[in-house]
């Protein structure tokens, strides 16, 4: 990528040097910049299944009050490991809120899609007020949100760093 990497060096006020460490000099002024790679937003195709089920749509309509019962919060993944004997499960340690605040354990069926080390540090979205349950004998306190279609699954994560762990989602 000969162009945008050059832009990066210009933004950081760095000389293009050999592969070395610590070439940034304190006191250098950074240049303001536009996002380097603005996200490509794909217009969502009209969901065929949804339009098919339109006639009996109101069967599954919930009121705002019903939705309000569900407490969605951001949580940071601190640790993750495989669950012995269960191919699909990962055991996560998450923190909801500031450092020192509530930590909890959660079991999720995402082992086929994510390696444990990929998850660490991710800001995920959980249902915070789900009744605790035991999955394969392991206590799970909450449920994480993910988008799934067919064989693909992606966790819902919060990329904006100004939103902290423990934030509510409405």
């Amino acid at each position: 990528m000969p162009n945008r990497t050059k832009t990066v060096l210009e933004i950081l006020g760095a000389e293009d040097t050999r592969a070395t460490w610590g070439a940034l000099k304190p006191g250098t002024s950074l240049q303001k910049h536009m996002p380097l790679f603005p996200r490509i937003e794909v217009p969502k195709p009209v969901d065929k299944e949804q339009s098919k089920t339109k006639p009996d749509k109101d069967v599954n309509v919930i009121t705002y009050d019903e939705f309000k019962k569900v407490e969605l919060k951001t949580a940071e993944v601190l640790a993750a490991e495989k669950v012995a004997g269960a191919d699909r499960l990962l055991k996560l340690q998450i923190r909801v809120g500031e450092v020192g605040e509530e930590q909890r354990q959660l079991v999720a069926g995402i082992a086929e899609y994510y390696r444990p080390d990929e998850l660490i540090g991710k800001m995920i979205v959980i249902v915070a007020n789900l009744k605790p349950a035991k999955i394969r004998g392991i206590e799970s306190n909450g449920m994480l949100l993910a988008a799934k279609k067919g064989k693909k699954l992606t966790l819902i994560t919060i990329d904006d760093s100004s939103i902290e762990s423990g934030a509510g989602i409405y």
Binding site: M1, P2, T5, V8, L9, L12, A14, A19, W21, G22
Partner: peptide, 15 residues
């Protein structure tokens, strides 16, 4: 953190 960023930037330049 910015120091780290520099290195990332540098390695991508060769692509």
């Amino acid at each position: 953190p910015p120091r780290k960023l520099y290195v990332s930037a540098r390695c991508c330049c060769n692509r």
